[in-house]
Simulated assay, not measured.
Amino acid sequence: MNTTGIAVIVYILWMVALLTVFLFVRVSALVKREVRTNNFRADGSDVSKFAERLARTHANCYESAPMVLGILLLALATDQIHVTNGLALYVVAARILQGLVHMLSTNAHMVRLRFVLFIAQIVIITLWSIQFLKIFMSNTF
């Protein structure tokens, strides 16, 4: 099974899901006449604390996309999915869990949990990057 390809799709679907939830939050605010159509703030702070955390969660996803999707797509493009297949779904799961925790709460315990989930992603991506560097420097495909 190509878990690397599945991880790419799941990551993209997570971002789409976040946008969809944000759409519903904003439409709801419009229907309730809490915000005018042309007055939405990009950070969601004009709608609710949840909308603000949701916007930040989505921003975290596209900020991390070059690292997460970049290395997964590199594995697919170079036919080196053996490097990423084992942990690909774990990286995406950590990203999704980090986002869910962020949307639920900003208390100190939750922030620490988010940090641990973020560090897990960084460690895995760093290990993959080192593996790719070794492969590319040895020119053995």
Rank of each mutant, 00 (worst) to 15 (best):
N2D: 00
T3G: 12
G5T: 05
G5P: 05
I6M: 00
A7L: 03
A7I: 02
V8T: 00
Y11D: 01
Y11V: 09
I12S: 13
I12L: 13
L13W: 01
W14H: 02
M15Y: 06
M15S: 05
A17Q: 07
A17E: 13
L19M: 12
F22K: 14
F22I: 15
F24N: 09
V25G: 05
R26M: 11
R26L: 02
S28R: 15
V31T: 12
V31W: 05
V31M: 08
K32M: 10
R33C: 10
R33T: 11
R33K: 14
E34N: 12
V35Y: 01
R36N: 09
T37E: 14
N38V: 10
N39P: 09
N39S: 12
N39T: 13
N39D: 15
N39E: 14
F40S: 05
F40G: 03
R41S: 10
A42D: 11
D43M: 04
D43K: 04
G44P: 07
S45H: 04
S45P: 06
D46H: 14
S48G: 00
S48P: 05
S48H: 03
K49R: 15
A51I: 09
E52N: 15
L54Y: 01
L54M: 07
L54P: 00
A55L: 06
A55F: 01
R56Q: 00
T57K: 07
A59K: 14
A59H: 12
N60G: 06
C61F: 07
A65E: 05
V68K: 02
L69D: 06
G70H: 08
I71R: 00
I71T: 11
I71W: 04
L72C: 06
L73S: 14
L73H: 00
L74H: 04
L74C: 11
A77N: 09
H82W: 14
H82M: 15
V83Y: 09
T84F: 04
N85C: 08
G86P: 14
G86S: 06
G86H: 06
G86K: 08
L87M: 13
L87I: 08
A88H: 04
L89V: 03
Y90Q: 07
V92E: 01
A93Y: 08
I96G: 06
G99E: 13
G99Y: 00
L100G: 02
V101S: 01
M103Y: 02
M103R: 02
T106R: 12
T106I: 15
A108W: 15
A108K: 14
H109E: 10
H109G: 15
M110Q: 09
M110N: 15
V111D: 00
R112K: 13
R112Q: 11
L113V: 12
R114S: 00
F115K: 01
F115A: 10
V116E: 10
L117P: 05
I119L: 13
V123C: 02
T126P: 03
L127A: 08
S129I: 05
S129W: 10
S129D: 03
I130V: 10
Q131I: 03
F132S: 02
I135E: 03
F136V: 01
F136E: 08
M137R: 14
M137Q: 13
S138L: 11
N139I: 11
N139T: 08
N139E: 11
T140F: 15
T140P: 01
T140Q: 13
T140H: 06
